[in-house]
Amino acid sequence: MENKIQFLSKYRKNMSIVNIANMHEDAISNEWYDILKESDRSLRIKNTIEHWNSISSKELRNTISYLTQNLVDVELINYDDTYSILYTVTVGDGEIDYFEGKMPIRSVNNTELNKFWMNTPISIKNFYEKLHNGFYYFPSRAMGLIPIENITFFGNDEWGIIEELDLPLDINLDSTFGFFSTGMGGYVALDYNNCSNDNATIWFVDDQPQYNANFWDIVDEWIVIGFE
């Protein structure tokens, strides 16, 4: 336990693993409280997988399949007065990595995105409002879905790649948000002018964008790539 905390504390100040018996159940969502109050680790894992399946079984089937086979533990952590779920996952050649899923959102703490949130595809809203406010590799906060408060508003950035595009830009920057980040300049983005049926754009800071991609197909694939 101590070695784990020492490692995790390199990336989050004042981080602690929380004993749920010592906290008020209203501090986290009811669903996660019911999962985490179970002392048997195998049951916590089983209930976690069932929770993912109840919300995103179709959208994140490969992610859930990987977690089903490789999830070692789920624990509640706290830092900066916020709670998250810490996922301990076996990756690659048997190494252990850590992933974070913040508590589901109760409101949209993002000024620009708040204007559009009601038009978000229901599958994406369900993930953020019922499962996690983002899910990503713990050390880098990347290779995953970004917390609402950190989602990239394309209208705030100057994208040098636009000058190098082979074809005219096919998204409106002022209505586009990057929900998934690779941490290396790749995004899965939604343009709210064209996001029905989970339509998304794969955006790169140094390559041609790919339009009309399915949001969840790419997110699911890239999360698993991050595991491996």
Rank of each mutant, 00 (worst) to 15 (best):
W52F: 14
M143F: 12
N126P: 03
I77K: 01
K13A: 15
Y79E: 06
S29G: 10
S57R: 05
I28P: 03
L131D: 00
R141P: 03
Y66C: 06
F180T: 01
D97A: 14
I49G: 00
Y98P: 02
F179A: 02
Q210N: 12
T63Q: 00
M143T: 10
Q208M: 14
E112Y: 12
N114G: 08
P139T: 08
W32N: 04
S123W: 00
A189M: 08
I96Q: 05
Y211E: 09
S29L: 07
M103D: 03
T111W: 06
Y187I: 02
T201H: 09
S181C: 06
I20K: 06
W159H: 12
V74Y: 08
S29H: 07
D191Y: 08
L71Q: 04
P104K: 01
L76W: 04
W216E: 00
L145I: 09
L60P: 01
E228K: 11
L173D: 06
A213M: 13
E164G: 09
W203V: 08
I225K: 11
V72R: 04
N109Q: 12
L8D: 03
S181Y: 01
E112L: 12
H132A: 10
L76H: 04
W52E: 00
F135W: 04
N126D: 13
V74A: 10
E31T: 07
G94P: 07
D217I: 07
L173R: 06
V205H: 15
T88M: 09
P147R: 02
E158R: 07
Y98V: 04
I122R: 02
N172G: 08
T182R: 02
K37M: 14
L86T: 05
N19D: 15
D207R: 09
F153C: 09
I5D: 05
E100V: 09
I28G: 04
R12Y: 10
N133R: 01
L8F: 04
F215V: 02
Y187V: 06
L173N: 03
C195G: 05
C195T: 04
D34A: 15
I148Y: 07
R12E: 13
L131M: 03
S56A: 12
E50N: 11
D34S: 15
S29I: 04
E228C: 13
D26P: 02
S65R: 08
M23N: 08
M143K: 10
I218Y: 05
S57I: 02
N62Q: 11
F116D: 03
